[in-house]
Amino acid sequence: MAMTTTPEADHSRAAATYRPAANRLGLWLFLASETFLFAAFISSRFVVSGTDQPEHLNQGLALLLTLLLLLSSISAFRAEAAMAHDNRKLFHREMLTTIVLGLLFLVGVGVEFNEAVADFPVGTIYGSSFFMLIGLHAFHVLTGILALGVVWNLGRKGHYSSQDHWPVEGVVKYWHFVDLMWVAIYPTLYLFGGS
């Protein structure tokens, strides 16, 4: 594994040869670790309130939020593919689309929180799980948007190319992960149990 260097190579080998493999593995390990964090909170919801569900859940809004995130994953994917083909114009457009969709998602979460507080406040057991899980996820969306913003800005300044765009790849993978976690949280909070 990763043994392409010759014995003569000096210390620059770390920078040159191993970087992409190490970065990728590091990111995947981080995502695996994060999965455990989400798993802990998702399983907590079933431990404390079984499959109980409150009567008032804004199913329409939740579906809309899901759609927003799924669409943003598509635009994120297109942004990465655009950079891989040196198509900077498309890269800008798709990155911005992703960021805007992410921001819309956060606005939607704000609306949802505002509504939910009336129906099942934080001090109820379902409310505890609900606000904890969605809050945790929204925090990840927020960090994702910040990271997308940083990468978009650097890409705008011409920092990446089709040969060298690990940060784009990394942030897009992270965004897909955040999206995937929502795909687990959405049924946990909105679809399981109830009537």
């Binding site: 390990l29 994060e34 964090l37 404390v48 934080v122 001090g123 505890s128």
Partner: peptide, 24 residues
């Protein structure tokens, strides 16, 4: 790498119960 997240989760829940008014 993997299991420490559960410790973090349990402590975050304690912090939430103390500070944010959840009832886990």
């Amino acid at each position: 790498l993997l299991t420490t997240q559960f410790f973090a989760a349990s402590l975050i829940l304690i912090a939430m119960d103390r500070v944010a008014g959840t009832v886990f």
